Amino acid sequence: MINLNGNLLEDSQASLSVSNRGFAYGDSVFETIRVINGKIMFWEDHYFRLMASMRIMRMEIPANFSPEFLEEEIITLVKANELETSPARVKFSVFRKEGGYYTPETRDIGYVASVKELDDAFYTLSDDFYEIELFKDHYINSGLLSSIKSNNRAVNVLGSIFASENGYNNCLILNEKKSVVEALNGNIFLVKGSVIKTPPVSDGALNGITRKQLLGIVEKIDDYSLEEASISPFELQKADELFITNVITGIQPVSKYRKKEFASKVAKDLLSKLNVKARLGG
């Protein structure tokens, strides 16, 4: 079942027009949400990021788009797909309504939500070998537009094709200043000694939900110090650990970048703390 503008429809009945602005111009934002046994993980952070993204895109936020209303829309969809006792992944997309070319005729919005079952209720650390490389064919620009989850993901798509063609599990994206910004599907963290470092949102990094949770976790651990600072590609091979974060996987340790192989001690420690926070509802 699909939720299209508040209506539950069978997948085969749910459709969007070819004039949909999300398709035609990428005039759309979305949230990827983890739902465990009918409970949305880190819902408050998702909600406020969605609202911020819509404001950045100058969309008209409907009066009924309260946290309670959208939460109910998501949970109803999960139940309609008989996943209320299972881990699930929900994609909630908001698009500006049809009309106009680059200049929209309206700022009003529509929305669509879909759901798929996940394998694990909570985050687990994969032992699979995970190799990454830099993607240098295209860059993303620093600034607010890069920090939101919009449908403009050409760099991520092309980087994913590059990774697949060259046998990498993932790639790191650079901004116009040649600083490392993020991975193709999540935020990047670097560990060197007792310092945990991640690029700032101002560099063009996605304002990730799991990123935010980990920043809060690390700030409370005396053994580590936290830096939100630009990362040069030259720092990567000097790191003790690299790991990637997103709301579906949690934490993905990097095994190898070029000739350097990495440990995963800090990633394991943080993953256990992230699971505790998820169980407590953030």
Score class of each variant (00 low, 15 high):
residue 177 K to D: 14
residue 202 S to H: 08
residue 25 Y to A: 01
residue 117 E to P: 09
residue 209 I to Y: 11
residue 18 V to F: 11
residue 46 H to K: 08
residue 237 Q to H: 10
residue 246 N to L: 02
residue 191 V to M: 06
residue 135 F to V: 05
residue 202 S to L: 13
residue 275 N to K: 01
residue 121 A to R: 09
residue 28 S to D: 06
residue 202 S to N: 13
residue 264 S to E: 04
residue 83 L to N: 09
residue 130 Y to R: 12
residue 162 F to T: 07
residue 261 E to W: 02
residue 177 K to L: 13
residue 7 N to C: 09
residue 15 S to Q: 10
residue 165 E to L: 02
residue 81 N to E: 02
residue 22 G to T: 01
residue 143 G to W: 04
residue 174 L to N: 03
residue 180 V to C: 04
residue 203 D to V: 08
residue 239 A to H: 09
residue 20 N to Y: 05
residue 244 I to M: 04
residue 123 Y to W: 06
residue 13 Q to V: 06
residue 96 R to V: 02
residue 207 N to C: 12
residue 113 A to R: 06
residue 265 K to R: 14
residue 249 T to Q: 12
residue 84 E to S: 12
residue 7 N to P: 07
residue 178 K to V: 08
residue 206 L to M: 14
residue 177 K to M: 13
residue 194 S to A: 12
residue 183 A to C: 12
residue 52 A to D: 13
residue 106 T to G: 11
residue 82 E to C: 11
residue 163 A to I: 01
residue 200 P to K: 12
residue 265 K to I: 14
residue 260 K to Y: 08
residue 243 F to I: 08
residue 233 P to R: 00
residue 52 A to P: 00
residue 55 R to H: 13
residue 81 N to L: 03
residue 213 Q to V: 05
residue 88 A to S: 15
residue 8 L to A: 09
residue 91 K to L: 11
residue 24 A to T: 14
residue 64 N to Q: 14
residue 61 I to F: 05
residue 64 N to M: 10
residue 112 V to T: 03
residue 206 L to C: 03
residue 170 N to Q: 13
residue 131 E to Y: 06
residue 14 A to D: 11
residue 226 L to E: 05
residue 33 I to A: 04
residue 115 V to E: 01
residue 37 N to K: 14
residue 240 D to K: 00
residue 142 S to V: 06
residue 179 S to L: 03
residue 132 I to Q: 03
residue 20 N to K: 11
residue 274 L to I: 00
residue 56 I to V: 15
residue 222 D to T: 15
residue 55 R to W: 11
residue 204 G to Q: 11
residue 112 V to D: 07
residue 97 K to W: 03
residue 116 K to S: 15
residue 223 D to K: 15
residue 233 P to A: 00
residue 134 L to K: 01
residue 95 F to D: 01
residue 163 A to C: 12
residue 136 K to N: 12
residue 156 N to H: 14
residue 227 E to G: 09
residue 11 D to F: 14
residue 223 D to R: 15
residue 36 I to D: 13
residue 34 R to E: 08
residue 188 I to C: 02
residue 125 L to W: 00
residue 277 K to Y: 02
residue 125 L to C: 02
residue 176 E to M: 07
residue 170 N to H: 00
residue 192 K to Q: 12
residue 190 L to S: 07
residue 167 G to F: 08
residue 115 V to I: 13
residue 248 I to T: 10
residue 28 S to E: 12
residue 255 S to Y: 04
residue 165 E to T: 06
residue 20 N to H: 13
residue 75 I to S: 04
residue 276 V to F: 09
residue 227 E to L: 13
residue 236 L to W: 03
residue 208 G to H: 07
residue 193 G to D: 03
